[in-house]
Design a protein around this nucleic acid. Structure first.
Lengths: 172, 172
DNA sequence: GCCCAACGACTGCCCGAGCAACTATAGCCG
DNA sequence: CGGCTATAGTTGCTCGGGCAGTCGTTGGGC
């Protein structure tokens, strides 16, 4: 062939994207065993790690890859399933919190250990600590360079926190 | 906090997923400048690198992250836009080829250099060769472990070939 | 040669998500 | 206080994509 498409740069993104796709698929399968989608898992995780197991809808949108309308709908579904509740914000009557219910916490506790196990099985456990550190270091640089901080206006947050599945962004 | 969510495994997937999201967004923006979506770019690239600039619909589906119905529709759109054509397969009257038109090749040639430049700018150029090699090596292992070869029954294809020009994030 | 299971492509239906429009509230500035 | 703009959340519309069902075709078994 000897064409342009054998460019090492193309191969590089191919590797990154396929690794991502592969892991996504594995994770999604495990989430589904517990009746969750990937987005729902992310939502419930972000909430559970926030003070009071709750976040305002906008902040939740900022921490996830969703738009605010997307958050509205995901919270709709999860509220219908009893995993979340909406709670009015005392200070600002425009805002409302999404709160994890007891059932939601239980669901998360059922799902999380298996999830960590899968990460280890398909990702971190595939490499010796040294190689893993090198991989993560490279990823961190790429992430810092490419990640659109403007994604939801939460660019003031510590990126490392965001990477680690969400830091509670304190704004306003 | 000292909670479960600071687990290094979570941080690791966070890095990988955010790097992917960041690059996807950058790439998508550049594709859009040329009137292409990420999926369309992947489709036209896979076709252009194949002998005769063509592939059967099923094979195209196998190489992309799309289902066969997804391919049907993407090819519909691109045929409407004049980038592709369908051609009947002489041997098997069930099959049809998707072929890149001259306009399609031109569009690709307009898009590709900028794309390579972006890869370099946001990804490969962020690391010195040694670190990049380490990163790619790690990614390759993770990809080999986690990537679902069964994705579309094309497990006989050279994985490295498939890796090249990985396109959009699949649903998951 | 005939039949039937397998296969390739396409279509109907549904779902999830984004954008833009809308409503209600908040805060500012006069 | 009255008005004006910005903000939080929701909803209508649209679009892309998957699943499952359909139709035509193929090839193997008899």
């Amino acid at each position: 062939m000897t064409n342009v498409f054998d460019d090492p740069r193309i191969t590089a993104v191919g590797l990154l994207f396929e690794a991502h796709a592969g892991l996504s698929a594995r994770f999604a399968a495990q989430f589904e065993e517990h009746g969750l989608s990937a987005v729902e898992f992310e939502v419930i995780t972000r909430l559970a790690r926030s003070p009071g197991n709750q976040l305002r809808m906008t902040d939740l949108a900022a921490q996830t890859s969703l738009s605010t309308s997307g958050v509205t709908r995901v919270v709709d579904r999860m509220e219908r399933d009893g995993l979340l509740t909406r709670r009015a914000c005392p200070n600002d009557r425009r805002s409302s919190y999404a709160v994890v219910t007891a059932a939601g916490m239980q669901r998360l506790n059922e799902t999380l250990p298996g999830h960590l196990q899968m990460i280890e099985q398909w990702f971190t456990g595939q490499l010796d600590p040294e190689a893993l550190a090198a991989l993560l270091d490279g990823l961190r640089r790429v992430r810092d360079a490419a990640h659109p901080c403007a994604t939801a206006g939460s660019d003031d947050a510590d990126p490392e926190q965001i990477a680690a599945t969400g830091g509670a962004t304190r704004r306003s």
